[in-house]
Design a protein around this nucleic acid. Structure first.
Lengths: 211, 211
DNA sequence: GTCTATAAGGGGATAGAC
DNA sequence: GTCTATCCCCTTATAGAC
């Protein structure tokens, strides 16, 4: 079992995740991370060989959290409509549980990073792991269309919509809260987000009624 | 009429938009921008008083493009369902027309920037102008619910979904293209995105049929 | 395992020649 | 309007004391 008081390494990962999520890789210096963890800059390099490696480690932790919650929901039990409901709920739950996750994911998806970061991320295989999750979600939608539970759709487009509606939402921060004039990570807000998206998808994907 | 050959200022704005969109404010140095425009670093400071001011100017140009295309679509002609269709099409068109727009918007929304950038952006009023557009979209949805054209929904949630489904999509870059295994900015891809989103929204927002 | 000190480089910004 | 040269600060990373 781990230490009762978090190790310096774990503390560094926590503050690095927080800082990288809010301002991005290039904007955060290692001294800022170390300082926020209550350490000197050089001590950080004792735990991580480079800044890029620290960032990649943070990313891996985020992806592991996502896998832990979303993969179980993808085990095909019941019809595809129910599975999609479970998956949407799982994605929203895991993004809401750690408010930094959505922003880090968003950055890793659309940011053309530093060469060092690209190399370190590639070595950690996070992109493949994210792609593997999305492939399974695609399969659920395809099964639903094949079974006639969903109307025919462009699966990649629907996937982009689901990702955008979940990841973007929980990454939107102050912008989103200004839009709602209310917190985004409150229990009610999370439950409402889940409900609204599930209804929109179920009704929007329902097949045409035969005359 | 403007110069036939673009002025240095316009050229700087173009390359800065490109670079800031792909890697973010902190990751791009003024020398990189100036170099890409074929100028020395110091020449840039002749056209813009500071890096933050350059970034803010880029943002204003993007917001003006959005306004130019989306505001006309918001003029309420026809019922709210048709207006929403027009608005979705206009957002997609303007984001597709300039591939940098979506990423810059996304960054300005969810990035906790440098203090200088926050100050410069606030001075330029871009946030208020984006908020003004979204307020008008909200009004369309509210009108639709009030008129019974749409089922009752959480308007902020639907707005987040629409923004996520459009801005995120066109900001997703290589990630999105890997998902589609095809270009995102091709004419067919743009038309399909429009169609898929409009159908999902129209069907997903349709009021319940009375028995 | 954390520190101070230092190296080597790049950042934004300014001054002044042309 | 663009250039070279320079300023000072902050960056990542390393070396070695404790």
């Amino acid at each position: 079992m781990p230490d009762p008081s978090p190790s310096s390494r774990a503390k560094l990962l926590d503050v690095a995740e927080q800082l990288f999520a809010s301002r991005g890789y290039a904007a955060i210096g290692v001294s800022a991370v170390a300082g926020a963890a209550g350490l000197g800059k050089s001590s950080l390099f004792h735990h991580f060989p480079s800044k890029a490696d620290l960032y990649a480690t943070v990313l891996v932790r985020v992806v592991e959290r996502i896998e832990g919650q979303v993969l179980p929901a993808l085990v095909a039990i019941g019809d595809p409509a129910h599975t999609l409901d479970r998956v949407v709920a799982a994605i929203i739950d895991v993004l809401a549980e750690h408010p930094t996750s959505a922003r880090l994911l968003l950055r890793s998806v659309f940011e053309d990073d530093d060469e060092d970061v690209i190399a370190a991320s590639a070595a950690s295989g996070v992109n493949e792991r994210i792609a593997a999750i999305l492939d399974k979600v695609s399969a659920v939608i395809e099964d639903g269309v094949a079974a006639g539970v969903f109307r025919p759709v462009s699966v990649p487009d629907l996937l982009q919509t689901v990702v955008g509606a979940t990841v973007f939402h929980f990454a939107s921060g102050d912008f989103g809260e200004a839009l709602f004039r209310a917190p985004i990570f409150s229990a009610e807000a999370i439950a409402r987000r889940k409900r609204e998206l599930q209804i929109l998808l179920q009704q929007g994907l329902a097949p045409a009624v035969r005359p």
